[in-house]
Amino acid sequence: MSKQKAKRRQAKKDTRRAMEQRKTQRQPDWPVLGLALFGMLVTAWLTLAASTTSGMPLCAEGSGCDIIQASRWSTLFGIPVALFGFLTYAAIALISFEMRPATKRWRRQWFISLVGLAVSLYLTAIGLIELQAVCFWCLISLATISAIFIWLTIKRPAAGPGQPWRDWLLNTGATTLVILAVMHLHYSGLLGPGMGREDPQLQALATHLDEEGARYYGASWCPACQEQEDLFGASSERLPFVECHPQGRSGLMASACVNAGIEQFPTWVIDGEQHEGILTPEELARLSNFDWEE
């Protein structure tokens, strides 16, 4: 009898322990939820900065934040990148709050944070390489998504992702690389309507400007210059471009730009006259006596 009672007591203890474990597993993931909510605030602020022309704290005119927000890398398929970041954090927050089994919840949290971290690192590298600028708020978002990813990696369930780790990493890594590849193709102009094909009219105008001795002064990190070149699409490489900051944003201005008296980017010099700001192809055609209609 004593052995049976002992077995029953042990069975009750095991049942109680299992219930407590299930209860613990189905509690919200508070650390990740808190970080995700903070990330939502940061990206909401960046989304607001992208939709307003007024100066915002730590994103004043001419700052790294302003340069990045005005560049073509601030949007993806016409949607602010910050909004994608907000939705990423919102998805992590929702999953963290839902009382799913720990392993299932972790799989989704970890995958989304991996994609978010990879995209954030890609855009940060673009800012440093292409624009020679960094955005304070973007760095805060990068630190937040990094903290989420590191925390989830350290706190992964003992059961793992539910499949061999090698297969899991290959699948999630491949998916992340595909997302980055699509982004890069988009920013390279290879996913646009023309898919890299030149418009004959824009090609002829760019060639005409070069042959007529016109000069287009700008800088590789200048957002307005990027907008100017976007107006010419694949023919932008034919423009008579003069790089005024060959050593980067913090470098000295090139002597050709100093001698030309360039003070603003972009600046066009056509028939000896300066024209500051972005000019449409129609305006450039008129100023350079190019028959746009023909």
Rank of each mutant, 00 (worst) to 15 (best):
T88R: 03
G196N: 00
L170A: 13
A224L: 10
K3H: 11
W45L: 14
S220A: 14
S71D: 09
Q203T: 14
Q247V: 01
I140L: 13
R286T: 13
S96Y: 05
M183I: 10
M183T: 01
R8C: 00
S250K: 13
L35K: 03
E273N: 06
L239G: 01
E227I: 10
G64S: 08
P57G: 09
W137A: 06
L48F: 15
A125G: 08
S54V: 14
L152M: 08
F232D: 02
I148A: 09
R9V: 10
W268L: 02
L131A: 08
G272R: 04
G189R: 03
D66P: 07
M253H: 04
I95S: 05
F38N: 05
G127N: 11
L142Q: 08
A44R: 06
E283G: 04
S51M: 13
A125P: 00
G272N: 06
C244E: 01
G233N: 05
F241N: 01
G116K: 07
E243Q: 10
R215W: 04
V42N: 11
V182S: 08
A6Q: 14
D271E: 15
V115P: 00
T267F: 12
K5P: 01
F86E: 09
A18R: 13
L58H: 09
F232A: 03
L41R: 05
